[in-house]
Amino acid sequence: MISATLRHQRELNLGSAGRWDDFAGHRRRVTDLILGHRTGRPSSRLVVLGAGNCNDLELARLLAGFADVDLVDIDTEALAGAVRRQRLPDGARLRLHGGVDLTDPAPDRLERLSRGDVVVSTTVLTQLLDVALQAGATGPELLTVRDDHLRLITGLLAPRGVGMLVTDVVSSDTCPQLRTTGTGGLGPLLAEVVNGGNFFTGANPFAIERWLSTSPDLRLDRFGMAPPWRWDIGDRSYLVSALAFRKQAEWRTINAAG
């Protein structure tokens, strides 16, 4: 029996599979940000959560920048189709992890993933929140979904690895001025929609940064937020934010304990 999460994700993936061109600017921005956070380790590994169709990832560039790339998604067919569409050569250092439900990732499936030097969630947070909302989740329950996803990212990080959360914050459905706002005005617009409460529940990047920075058990430091950008898809636009954070080295934990 197909789960509600898989059904929802397949519908989204099927709807966007042929929209490669609509993702061009967004794809370039996401890929550049990921590559900008490489740690420089010879055996560096990238883990992408919610990879789906990979329309927002330039896989060839990522494979040139990392020793290994792991793509994780609930939709196995979407991952396989993504590799075919981007025409990667045989033997590419790419591992596909399909069937992983990020709303409730099974420990045995997560154990197949090596720790990543960079672990990124690519606009999947609001999809997870939407699934929970359709199941009747309330505001506090939605924040629990968000926090669990953030813990998943940090839990997959190697010491001194960098986590990234890329998420859409609001759409032009409720913020029509987004369609005509220039690049320089997107930062003030992000502050305006957040202050006005006009954003997807759980996707406030400032609240996410506060939660991450005040959760001592996560042991994170060096937070940074990229300038927001607009992602145009047909007659709808999304305001996108990207937050990066680094996991502390394990020796700090040892010294603190001893």
Rank of each mutant, 00 (worst) to 15 (best):
T144W: 01
T144P: 00
D147N: 12
D147W: 04
D147I: 02
D148K: 04
H149A: 06
H149D: 04
L150K: 02
L150T: 01
L150P: 00
L150H: 05
R151C: 03
L152S: 05
L152Y: 03
I153T: 01
T154E: 07
G155C: 01
L156S: 00
L156E: 03
L156N: 02
L157H: 00
A158L: 02
A158W: 00
A158D: 07
A158G: 01
A158Q: 01
P159R: 00
G161D: 03
V162R: 13
G163C: 02
G163Y: 04
M164L: 15
L165K: 07
L165G: 05
V166M: 09
V166L: 11
V166R: 03
T167N: 11
D168P: 11
D168F: 01
V169M: 05
V170A: 15
V170C: 12
V170Q: 11
S171V: 07
S172Y: 09
D173F: 11
D173N: 13
T174Q: 11
T174V: 15
P176L: 07
P176K: 10
P176G: 07
Q177E: 15
Q177L: 13
R179Q: 14
R179N: 14
T180L: 12
T180R: 15
T180W: 14
G182C: 10
G182Y: 12
G184M: 04
G185D: 08
G185N: 08
G185P: 08
G185K: 10
G185I: 12
L186M: 05
G187T: 14
G187W: 09
G187C: 01
P188K: 05
P188R: 05
L190C: 03
L190K: 06
A191W: 08
A191R: 14
A191I: 07
A191E: 14
E192H: 12
V194W: 04
N195M: 13
N198L: 15
N198C: 14
F199N: 10
F199D: 04
F199G: 04
F199I: 09
F200R: 14
F200V: 15
T201Q: 10
G202Y: 05
G202F: 05
A203I: 00
A203R: 11
N204S: 07
N204D: 15
P205H: 03
A207G: 02
A207D: 06
I208V: 14
E209A: 12
E209F: 00
E209H: 01
R210H: 12
W211Q: 13
W211L: 12
L212Q: 10
L212T: 09
S213Y: 03
T214F: 12
S215P: 02
P216H: 08
P216V: 07
D217Q: 13
L218A: 05
R219G: 04
R219M: 13
L220N: 06
D221I: 01
G224C: 09
G224N: 11
M225K: 13
M225R: 15
M225G: 13
A226S: 14
A226F: 11
A226W: 12
P228F: 09
